[in-house]
C-alpha cells in the first residue's frame, strides 16, 4: 500500500495515523506539495486527475478521498466503524473552516481569514457541545466508548487549529478527547501534534 504523502497535510496525516493505529504497513512517497506543487505534476495528475493529496494506491486500486481511504483501511476491522457518516461530513466542514485558516497562515492560501476563523469557532463549539454530552454518558469518543474513523477524521484538523490562529484553550472536552486519541497504542506524531511524553518512562 502506497500513500502519496505531504508531511504537513492534515488529511495525509489522517491516513498515516489510521494505518499506524491499525498496525498496517504503509509505504509513503513524499510529494513536494509546497512550494513545488508536485501534486499537479503530469505524473500525479495521471494517478489522480483532481490533483489533490492524499492518494492511496493498493495494487490497481487508487483512492483520493480521505473518508473513502479511512473506510478502505478499516474494511476488516468493524470495531473502528460506528455511526460515522455525519462525522465524516463534519470533518470535511472542519477542513473548510479551520483547515483553510491553517493553509492561509502556513502556506499563504487565499482565504477570507476572518470568515473562516469565525466559521471554525462555530464548528469547534458544536464539537465541544457534542463531546460534553458524550462525557455525561461516560464516553470520550465521538460515537462511543472506543474510537472509530469518525474520531480519526476529525482529529487532525481540530488539533492543528492553532496553526490557523484558532485557539483550543477554551474547549475542555475537545482537549480531553484529543488526549484520549493521543493515548491510543500506536499513536504517531506530525509537526504540530506531539505525543504524550508522560506515557513514556522518564529518560
Amino acid at each position: 500500500m502506497i500513500l502519496y504523502d505531504y508531511i504537513l497535510s492534515a488529511s495525509c496525516y489522517q491516513v498515516r495515523l489510521m494505518a499506524a493505529l491499525l498496525g498496517q504497513p504503509l509505504t509513503t512517497r513524499a510529494v513536494n506539495f509546497h512550494p513545488a506543487k508536485e501534486h499537479k505534476s503530469p505524473e500525479m495528475l495521471k494517478l489522480n486527475p483532481k490533483g489533490t493529496l492524499p492518494v492511496l494506491q493498493d495494487g490497481d486500486l487508487v483512492l483520493t478521498e480521505s473518508a473513502e481511504i479511512l473506510r478502505y483501511l478499516t474494511r476488516d476491522t468493524p470495531d473502528w466503524r460506528g455511526q460515522d457518516e455525519v462525522w465524516l461530513s463534519f470533518a470535511a466542514a472542519l477542513n473548510g473552516s479551520i483547515g483553510t485558516a491553517r493553509l492561509h497562515d502556513i502556506l499563504s492560501y487565499d482565504a477570507d481569514i476572518d470568515a473562516v476563523r469565525r466559521a471554525g469557532v462555530q464548528h469547534l463549539r458544536q464539537l465541544e457541545a457534542h463531546l460534553v454530552e458524550q462525557r455525561f454518558d461516560g464516553m470520550i469518543f465521538l460515537t462511543g466508548h472506543t474510537p472509530t474513523i469518525a474520531d480519526i477524521a476529525c482529529f487532525p484538523t481540530t488539533a492543528l487549529a492553532p496553526d490557523g490562529g484558532v485557539s483550543l484553550d477554551v474547549y475542555p472536552s475537545i482537549r480531553l478527547w484529543m488526549r484520549a486519541i493521543r493515548s491510543l497504542p500506536g499513536f504517531i506524531e506530525m509537526p504540530g501534534i506531539h505525543r504524550l511524553h508522560e506515557l513514556e518512562a522518564a529518560p
Binding site: D169, P172, S173, R175, L176, R179, E198
Partner: peptide
C-alpha cells in the same frame, strides 16, 4: 476537566 496527570492553559 483537569484530571490527575494533566495541565491546561487558562487566561
Amino acid at each position: 476537566d483537569v484530571p490527575a496527570g494533566t495541565v491546561v492553559p487558562r487566561r
